[in-house]
Simulated assay, not measured.
Amino acid sequence: MPLLKQVGALPLRKAPSNMIEVLLVSSRDTGRWVIPKGWPSKRMVDSAAAAREAKQEAGVVGKIAKKPVGNYRYRKIEKENVRLIEVDVYLLWVKKEKKQWKEKAERNRVWFDAETASRKVREPNLRALISALAKR
């Protein structure tokens, strides 16, 4: 099974309590909690592509890190195809949440404290990345 590459944004903000909160979105197919992610682009650097995904899938914009904080793998199941995908994750400090965005009708977005967010996602390496934020 070939390994394909995606880029993802991990949207963050500081809560009034000074704790870090993580924005998760529901997946379109199963409704499970995920981070905004998608395919890299030949026309932009990977961090910019990750920021684009956050805007399209979660309606958030902000300051994106230039280098990934880590990565995780998941299996993408499409009809009879199963593809193994590695996602490079970029931190995105959210400055603005839009009221309307491209995939609003298809997804929910919810802010969680980092500890809760880490329990909501299924992928072990993504869970570990989010847990590390909770310990900061």
Rank of each mutant, 00 (worst) to 15 (best):
residue 127 R to E: 07
residue 122 R to V: 10
residue 22 V to F: 03
residue 31 G to F: 05
residue 41 S to A: 15
residue 126 L to S: 06
residue 39 W to K: 15
residue 29 D to V: 14
residue 21 E to M: 05
residue 66 K to T: 15
residue 93 W to M: 07
residue 121 V to E: 07
residue 18 N to S: 08
residue 116 T to G: 02
residue 54 A to H: 10
residue 117 A to N: 07
residue 98 K to T: 09
residue 103 E to Q: 12
residue 114 A to Y: 01
residue 116 T to P: 00
residue 83 R to K: 13
residue 64 I to M: 09
residue 102 K to I: 10
residue 46 D to L: 10
residue 42 K to S: 14
residue 73 R to V: 09
residue 99 K to A: 15
residue 44 M to L: 11
residue 31 G to T: 04
residue 62 G to Y: 03
residue 3 L to I: 13
residue 94 V to F: 03
residue 86 E to V: 07
residue 42 K to F: 11
residue 81 N to I: 13
residue 10 L to A: 06
residue 5 K to P: 00
residue 3 L to F: 04
residue 40 P to E: 07
residue 82 V to D: 02
residue 71 N to R: 13
residue 118 S to L: 04
residue 93 W to Y: 06
residue 71 N to S: 15
residue 129 L to F: 02
residue 68 P to E: 09
residue 25 V to D: 03
residue 135 K to P: 00
residue 28 R to W: 01
residue 15 A to L: 02
residue 49 A to G: 07
residue 81 N to C: 09
residue 13 R to A: 01
residue 14 K to Y: 04
residue 6 Q to Y: 14
residue 44 M to Q: 15
residue 30 T to G: 09
residue 15 A to W: 02
residue 132 A to H: 10
residue 102 K to Q: 10
residue 70 G to R: 00
residue 35 I to V: 15
residue 87 V to D: 04
residue 76 K to S: 11
residue 35 I to W: 03
residue 60 V to Q: 09
residue 39 W to N: 14
residue 107 R to C: 03
residue 88 D to H: 14
residue 67 K to L: 05
residue 13 R to T: 01
residue 70 G to M: 03
residue 118 S to G: 03
residue 17 S to D: 08
residue 67 K to T: 11
residue 86 E to A: 11
residue 120 K to S: 12
residue 120 K to W: 09
residue 88 D to A: 15
residue 15 A to C: 03
residue 23 L to D: 02
residue 135 K to Y: 06
residue 82 V to I: 13
residue 9 A to H: 08
residue 34 V to T: 06
residue 129 L to W: 04
residue 136 R to V: 11
residue 106 E to A: 14
residue 55 K to N: 10
residue 18 N to C: 01
residue 81 N to F: 12
residue 124 P to Q: 05
residue 100 Q to N: 14
residue 6 Q to S: 13
residue 60 V to C: 05
residue 133 L to T: 07
residue 22 V to K: 07
residue 46 D to Q: 14
residue 40 P to I: 12
residue 91 L to I: 00
residue 45 V to T: 13
residue 26 S to I: 09
residue 43 R to A: 14
residue 99 K to G: 10
residue 47 S to Y: 14
residue 134 A to T: 05
residue 119 R to G: 04
residue 26 S to F: 08
residue 16 P to I: 05
residue 51 A to L: 15
residue 115 E to G: 08
